[in-house]
């Protein structure tokens, strides 16, 4: 009788501890859920203050965007002095077709010469891709900076009998001449000139998934990326994302 009563007490004590722990756990979950729902996010709806980690970022963003209603004081200067002449007519943000991907393409224009994607593949000559400094035009040996902002542009280089030439500058003389004289040309002459300067351009440019895959268009390690970043760029499934989803956002969750 005494033993069984003791046993019973121990058993109930164990049960009470177990249920108590469950209770504490559930309470913590409930508190966390309330916190997530009501206090999470950039703005704390109760105090009207932001979380510390976001505070600085938000203040920065606010000070930028409150300068002018349309943020007109924000001017993006690429600082490129050795770039191709395409942008003289097509503009810095030349991709306007394809709502889904144009922002991605225009973002790539920041560090990739137009000709990389838009030039026709040439037979019998070797084309390599190199980072060329935006100001000096010299080839980079290391990448300094972050996320494509290296002060340089990826440019296609043709190697012909040991001689290297920039494919993004091959039509420069003709284009300059055209830009100076086009006001004096008639429509037919203009059309002919435009055809002439675009004849090396392909109608089927390189798409996301041709570069962002293993053994793709680029060898990312040749482009001075670390093996880790190269692997990351290869496995970015951008093409599938652009084809599958109507709307997408840049992920930051698992970025390296």
């Amino acid at each position: 009788m005494h033993n069984s009563a003791k046993k019973h007490t121990l058993k109930t004590l164990a049960l009470d501890i177990f249920m108590g722990l469950n209770f504490v756990f559930l309470l913590m979950v409930a508190v966390w859920i309330v916190w997530v729902y009501y206090f999470r996010g950039p703005i704390d709806i109760v105090t009207g203050k932001t979380r510390d980690s976001d505070q600085e970022l938000l203040m920065q963003a606010r000070s930028e965007y409150t300068k002018h209603f349309h943020g007109m004081d924000l001017v993006v200067i690429k600082g490129i002095q050795t770039g191709s002449l395409c942008v003289d007519c097509h503009g810095d943000y030349s991709h306007y077709k394809g709502q889904k991907v144009r922002a991605l393409f225009n973002a790539h224009s920041w560090f990739i010469a137009c000709e990389v994607c838009h030039i026709k593949p040439e037979q019998g000559s070797v084309v390599v891709y190199r980072w060329l400094d935006n100001k000096t035009g010299h080839e980079l040996t290391t990448l300094t900076g972050e996320n494509g902002d290296y002060g340089a542009t990826i440019v296609p280089l043709k190697i012909d009998n040991g001689k290297t030439s920039r494919l993004d500058r091959s039509e420069d003389d003709f284009i300059r001449e055209y830009l100076q004289t086009r006001d004096k040309l008639n429509d037919e002459q203009k059309k002919a000139a435009e055809e002439r300067m675009h004849e090396t351009m392909t109608k089927d440019p390189v798409f996301c998934d041709q570069c962002h895959k293993e053994n793709g268009f680029f060898n990312f390690t040749d482009l001075l990326y670390t093996p880790q970043t190269a692997k990351y760029l290869e496995t970015l499934d951008m093409g599938a994302m652009a084809k599958t989803y109507k709307e997408f956002h840049f992920p930051t969750l698992f970025d390296k």
Partner: peptide
């Protein structure tokens, strides 16, 4: 999210 939160709290 709102209804899920309500339901989860109601359950707990």
């Amino acid at each position: 999210l709102g209804e899920a939160t309500l339901a989860t709290l109601a359950i707990i």
